[in-house]
Computed example of a mutant assay.
Amino acid sequence: MPEAEPLVIEDLHVSFGAVTALDGLTLTANHGEVTAVLGPNGAGKTTMMRCCTGLVRPDSGSVSVMGHSPGSPEAAEATGLMPQSAGAWSGIRAGELLHYMAGLHADPIDPGTLIEALGIRPFARTTYRRLSGGQQQSVNLAAALIGRPRLVFLDEPTAGMDPHARHHTWDVVEQLRHDGVSVVLTTHAMDEAARLADHIWIVDRGKVAISGSVAALTAEADLEAVFLAHTSDTGERG
C-alpha cells in the first residue's frame, strides 16, 4: 500500500474569539519535496502549523499528517517540529541537549553530524539561554531532525540567523529533500523560498491566495512582486 501523503489540509477553519485565523485553508505537501507556505504576519501560517502538530484543534475542516490525526502517536513518531522557542531547555548546553534528544529515539542521527552540518560546534558548550536567537534556531533545527522524521515542520527556520547560518540551514534542508524527507516551512524570506521550495502556497486572510511551483509563479514577475500582488497588510490575524 502506498504511503499516505505527508500533509493534507482541507477546508480548515479556526477562530480565536472574534478573530478568524484560518478561513477555509486547503493545501497539500508532496513526498520528498519542500513545500513553502508564505504570507504576511497574521495570515494564519503559525496557526496552520499548530493545527498540524495537534496544538490547536480546528473549528472545522480536517488535517491528515502522514495519514494520521495531528498529535496522534503515529503522527508524532513520523514528524519533526522546529519550535519557535524552547525556554524549558534554557539551562542545558547545546551539545548536551542534542545528545539527550538523540537518546529519546531508536535510530537517531549522530548528534556530532548535525553539530557540524549546522555550524553548532563553536557554541556547543554554551547553555541554551546564552545563545543568540540565530544560534538557538540552529539548535532547534537539529533537535527537530535528530529522530530521522519523514516529515519536518519548520516555522521561519532562519529567523535571526546570520548569512553563514542561513546557508548552513539551506544546505541541510536541501539534503533532507535529497534523502526523501518531506519539508513544510514558513518564511518571510523570498530568496529562501525561491531557492528551497518545490511548491509554494501564498496565504492571505487565512486562505490560499495563489499557489504553484517557483517557475510557474515567477514566469512574469519575481516572487516578492507576486507575494505583494496577492496579499494584504491589514495587520495580525493568527
Rank of each mutant, 00 (worst) to 15 (best):
H68Y: 10
H99I: 14
M190I: 13
H13E: 12
G80W: 05
E224Y: 11
E3V: 10
E74M: 11
V139D: 08
A219T: 13
S60F: 12
Q175S: 14
C52Q: 02
G39E: 10
R237H: 13
E192C: 10
E174T: 04
R148C: 11
T234K: 01
Q175M: 06
L104P: 06
H188G: 11
G95P: 04
R125M: 15
S15H: 10
E174R: 08
V226W: 02
P58A: 05
E156P: 13
G91Y: 05
L223W: 00
R129N: 14
M82Y: 09
L7F: 05
Q175V: 09
R195Y: 06
T126S: 15
L196D: 04
Y128L: 07
R166P: 13
I120K: 02
L228W: 03
A106P: 08
V214N: 00
V34K: 00
A209V: 04
E5A: 15
A229L: 11
T158R: 00
R195A: 10
G67D: 08
T126G: 12
A88K: 00
T28D: 15
H13W: 13
Q137M: 03
G67W: 03
H230K: 06
A193P: 01
V56C: 03
A78I: 05
E3Y: 13
H199F: 13
A29M: 00
A36T: 04
E5L: 14
V65E: 08
V56D: 09
A165Y: 01
A43P: 13
G32P: 07
T46G: 09
P149R: 01
S211C: 13
V34G: 02
V65Q: 03
G133H: 05
M101C: 15
I146Y: 00
H31Q: 02
W89M: 13
G80A: 09
D204G: 08
V172E: 11
T127M: 12
S64F: 10
A189V: 12
R150M: 09
Q137A: 14
E174Q: 10
V183Y: 07
N41H: 08
H31D: 08
L27T: 02
A229C: 12
L228S: 06
G61W: 13
E77H: 09
H164M: 14
I92Y: 08
G61K: 01
V34W: 02
A215W: 07
S232T: 03
T186L: 09
R150A: 15
V56Y: 12
R150G: 15
L176I: 04
E192W: 05
M101K: 06
H164K: 13
L25H: 01
A102M: 06
G238I: 12
H105A: 09
G87S: 07
M1G: 15
V226F: 09
H164S: 15
